[in-house]
Design a protein around this nucleic acid. Structure first.
Length: 660
RNA sequence: GCCUGGGUAGCUCAGUCGGUAGAGCAGCGCAUUCGUAAUGCGCAGGUCAAGGGUUCGAAUCCCUUCCCAGGCUCCA
C-alpha cells in the first residue's frame, strides 16, 4: 500500500497510508490530540480535519486553545448562529458572519423588515445550544459558481458575493467568504442549513458551546451607509468555560475603569444634558488635574523651543474658505452665524489661524523651524451617534502645534519630534508605543509625487531610527500629506491612538506662505501639524482608564488627606496639612466627627494617594501614620519631615526615565 | 445620520394590571470621640428628560423633541 510522509511542526516525520486526512495525522500522533483537534494547517493553509494530506506536506494540528483554534471556533459559532436565526425566523436572509477579536458576528435581514430585540438574544442562544447538542457535522462541498448561484437562489446577499467573484470584482472580504478560483465552497452542517464559506470549520457543532451572545446592532450591508442596514448579532466564543468566564470578567473590569463612570464617581467632570451632546463641564477636582496636565505640557513645550500663541474660537467664513475646511468638512462644523459684517464659524482647527500668524510679516529662513504652540479649543459637530464620553466630544482642546520648516529641516524635525512625543507620553506613565505610518491615497492628494516621497521617507526614517515598531497604513493619509500616528498600550492591554505628526503641503500653498532663503529667493515652507495628547479631554479619559482612576500623585486632585483619630487630634492634623500645603501639596483635613474607619474608607474610595492618620503618639512625637493607596499596611511613626521629603521626591520624579 | 435599548432623588437602582413616588449610598441636623475600608437616630431631597395626546385617572399607553448606552457609518 502506498504511503505518504508528513512533516510535523517539531520537524519529525510520520508515515501514513495514501489518502489520509488531517484527522488521521492527528490520530497517528496521539489519541488525546485526535480528540482535541479542530482543524489543521497543511503547508501553512488552514484546512478541515477531513481534508486529505498530500505527500511531503507540513502538517500542524490546530487545537482549541490557540489563535487559529479560537478563530475557527468563532467562525463556526457564527454559522450555528445563522442556522439558529433561520430556524427561528424562516425566510431570514443571512449576509456575512466572520470571526472577530474575542468572538464573532453575523448580519441578517429578517422577513418583513423585523428587528431583533435584546430578548431575542436569549432565544437565539437557546436554539444555538440545541444545534450544538444535535452534534451536526460540518461538511464541505465545492461546486461551480453557477451551482453556487442555484444553491443560494433565495439568499440575495450570497448571490451578490458569488456574482462579484464570478465577475472577478471580488476583494479580500469576499474571498474570506468563498474560495479562490472558479469554484465556491459551501459548508452544510445539516440538511437545513448551508452557508457559503471558505472554511475551515470544526468537525461538528458539539465542539462548540462556550459562547455568549452579547448584543444586537444595526450594520450597513458591506459597510456602506447608502445600502440597506442589516441586523447584526455579536457573540463572544472561547475554547473553554474558564476562558469565557475570564473574558466576561475582563469586560467587567474594563467597565469599572470606564472614564465616564470614574469622572462621576470622583467628581471630576460631567456632561449636563442642558449643554447639549458632547460638551463637558470640568468640576474643581477635574479642573486641577487638567491644570497639572496643561502646566506640564506648557513647561515641556517651552523647553522644546516652541513659541506660544493664542487665537480666537471663531472666525469669518473667508478664513475657512481659504483653508479649505469649508469645502472639505462643512458637515463637521457647527453651523454658520450670520453677522452684520459676514458669516462666522466656530473653529474646527487651529491651523488656519497659525498660518495667519506666520504670514503676518515677512519671514526669514533664520526663523525656521518656527514652532507655534497653542492649547487651542476647537468645536466640531460630530454626528450624534458617534459621541462617546471624553473620547469623542464636540468641544475640545488640542495641544496643537504647527511647525514651519524647510524641506531640508523636515527629517531632523520629525526625528526630534518623535523623541519629544514619547518623552512626554512616558511622563504620563505609558511605556509601550506603536506607530502607524499613513501613506498617500492615490485617489485623493495634493502636492507633487516627489515631495510625498521625500516626506514619507523622512517619517519612515525617523521611525526606524527610533526603533519604533510601526505599520504602514496604505492610503490612509490626509489629502495634504503623510502622517505618523502613535498608539499607546494601557494597563489592561488596550491600545489608544494619541499623538499624531502630519506633514502638510496644502496649507502653505493655500495661504501662500513664504520665507526668504539664504539665496534671497522666496521659498514655500513645509508645515507639520502635531499634537501629543491629541485632545486634552481624550487624553484625560485615557489616563483615567489606564490608571483606573488612581492618578499618580503628581496628577491626583487631592494628594494627601489628614485624619485625626479623635477631635482632640484635629489641631495637629490641621498643622500637618498647613505644613504640607505651604510646600505646594494638595491636602485636606477631615475632622473626627465620624469613626476613623469610615473616614479612611471614604478617602480610599476617592483614590487619594496618601491618607495620614494622627493620634496621641503622633501629637506627642511629631509623627504620622502613613496609609498609602493600594497598601493594606500603614506605617506608623513616620516623621513629618521624612514624609514630606519622600512625597516631594515622588511628585518631582514623574517623567524621569530613572524614576520608580 | 442609521439600528437596538434606555432616561425615576446628587449617585446606583426598584416601582406589578394605568389608581398620583420608594430603597441604599451621598447631603443636612443631633448624638457619638473612635489607631487604619461603612457609629446611631432623625431630617430633607422629585414638574418621574421636555412637550403634546389618549383616559375619570399616566412614571406606566401613543406621538414629537432632547439626552445617554452599544453598534454601523464618519472622524481635518
Amino acid at each position: 500500500m502506498a504511503e505518504i510522509d508528513v512533516v510535523l511542526p517539531d520537524g519529525s516525520h510520520k508515515s501514513l497510508p495514501a489518502g489520509s486526512t488531517a484527522g488521521d495525522v492527528a490520530a497517528a500522533i496521539g489519541a488525546r490530540l485526535a480528540k482535541d483537534a479542530l482543524a489543521a494547517r497543511i503547508d501553512g493553509v488552514l484546512s478541515d480535519l477531513a481534508a486529505s494530506v498530500p505527500d511531503g506536506a507540513h502538517v500542524g494540528i490546530v487545537t482549541p486553545a490557540s489563535d487559529d483554534g479560537r478563530e475557527i471556533l468563532r467562525h463556526s459559532s457564527a454559522h450555528v448562529m445563522a442556522q439558529a436565526v433561520t430556524r427561528l425566523w424562516p425566510g431570514a436572509k443571512y449576509a456575512i458572519g466572520p470571526a472577530i477579536e474575542n468572538g464573532f458576528y453575523y448580519d441578517f435581514e429578517l422577513p418583513g423588515g423585523a428587528h431583533f430585540t435584546d430578548e431575542d438574544l436569549a432565544r437565539i442562544e437557546a436554539t444555538m445550544r440545541e444545534i450544538v447538542a444535535e452534534d451536526q457535522p460540518f461538511t464541505r462541498r465545492e461546486m461551480s459558481i453557477d451551482d453556487g448561484l442555484a444553491v443560494f437562489a433565495d439568499q440575495p446577499f450570497k448571490i451578490e458575493i458569488i456574482t462579484k467573484v464570478k465577475e472577478g470584482a471580488d476583494d479580500d472580504e469576499d474571498l474570506g467568504e468563498v474560495s479562490a478560483g472558479p469554484i465556491v465552497s459551501v459548508y452544510a452542517n445539516s440538511e437545513g442549513f448551508v452557508d457559503l464559506c471558505r472554511g475551515p470549520h470544526v468537525p461538528s457543532t458539539k465542539r462548540l458551546g462556550h459562547f455568549k451572545l452579547m448584543r444586537v446592532a444595526g450594520a450597513y450591508w458591506r459597510g456602506d451607509e447608502k445600502r440597506p442596514q442589516l441586523q447584526r448579532v455579536y457573540g463572544t466564543a472561547w475554547e473553554s468555560a474558564a476562558a469565557l468566564a475570564a473574558h466576561l470578567h475582563q469586560l467587567e473590569e474594563a467597565e469599572k475603569r470606564d472614564h465616564r463612570r470614574l469622572a462621576t464617581e470622583l467628581d471630576l467632570l460631567s456632561f449636563p444634558s442642558e449643554l447639549g451632546g458632547g460638551l463637558a463641564v470640568w468640576h474643581p477636582r477635574g479642573g486641577i488635574v487638567r491644570k497639572q496636565m496643561e502646566d506640564f505640557s506648557r513647561a515641556r513645550h517651552l523647553e522644546g523651543g516652541y513659541e506660544f500663541v493664542v487665537t480666537p474660537h471663531l472666525a469669518n467664513a473667508r478664513l475657512f474658505e481659504t483653508s479649505g475646511h469649508l469645502g472639505f468638512y462643512k458637515d463637521g462644523m457647527y453651523p454658520p452665524m450670520e453677522m452684520d459684517n459676514g458669516t462666522y464659524y466656530m473653529k474646527p482647527m487651529n491651523c488656519p489661524m497659525h498660518c495667519l500668524i506666520f504670514r503676518s510679516r515677512a519671514r526669514s529662513y533664520r526663523e525656521l523651524p518656527l514652532r507655534l504652540f497653542e492649547l487651542g479649543t476647537v468645536y466640531r459637530y460630530e454626528r450624534a451617534g458617534t459621541l462617546h464620553g471624553l473620547m469623542r466630544i464636540r468641544g475640545f482642546t488640542q495641544d496643537d502645534s504647527h511647525i514651519y520648516c524647510t524641506e531640508e529641516q523636515l527629517e531632523g524635525e520629525i526625528i526630534s519630534l518623535l523623541g519629544f512625543v514619547m518623552d512626554v507620553l512616558r511622563a504620563f506613565g505609558f511605556s509601550e508605543f506603536t506607530a502607524n505610518l499613513s501613506t498617500k491615497d492615490p485617489e485623493k492628494y495634493v502636492g507633487s509625487d516627489e515631495i510625498w516621497e521625500k516626506s514619507t521617507d523622512a517619517l519612515r526614517g525617523a521611525l526606524e531610527r527610533f526603533g519604533l515598531e510601526y505599520q504602514i497604513k496604505k492610503g490612509d493619509a490626509a489629502f495634504y500629506g503623510p502622517k505618523i500616528d502613535i498608539d499607546v498600550r494601557d494597563a489592561i492591554g488596550r491600545t489608544w491612538q494619541l499623538s499624531t505628526i502630519q506633514c502638510d503641503f496644502n496649507h502653505p500653498e493655500r495661504f501662500d506662505l513664504e520665507y526668504v532663503g539664504a539665496d534671497n529667493q522666496r521659498h514655500r515652507p513645509i508645515m507639520l501639524h502635531r499634537a501629543l495628547f491629541g485632545s486634552i479631554e481624550r487624553f484625560f479619559g485615557v489616563l483615567l482608564e489606564h490608571y483606573a482612576g488612581n492618578l499618580p500623585t503628581w496628577l491626583a486632585p487631592e494628594q494627601v488627606r489628614v485624619l485625626g483619630v479623635r477631635n482632640d487630634h484635629d489641631d495637629y492634623a490641621r498643622e500637618v496639612a498647613a505644613h504640607l500645603k505651604e510646600t505646594g501639596v494638595r491636602v485636606s483635613v477631615e475632622v473626627a466627627n465620624e469613626p476613623l474607619g469610615a473616614r479612611i474608607r471614604r478617602a480610599k474610595m476617592e483614590k487619594i494617594p496618601y491618607v495620614l492618620v494622627v493620634g496621641d503618639e503622633d501629637v506627642a512625637s511629631g509623627t504620622l501614620g502613613v496609609n498609602a493607596r493600594g497598601s493594606n499596611d500603614p506605617s506608623r511613626g513616620v516623621s513629618l519631615g521624612e514624609f514630606t521629603t519622600a512625597l516631594h521626591a515622588e511628585i518631582l520624579a514623574h517623567g524621569r526615565p530613572d524614576a520608580d
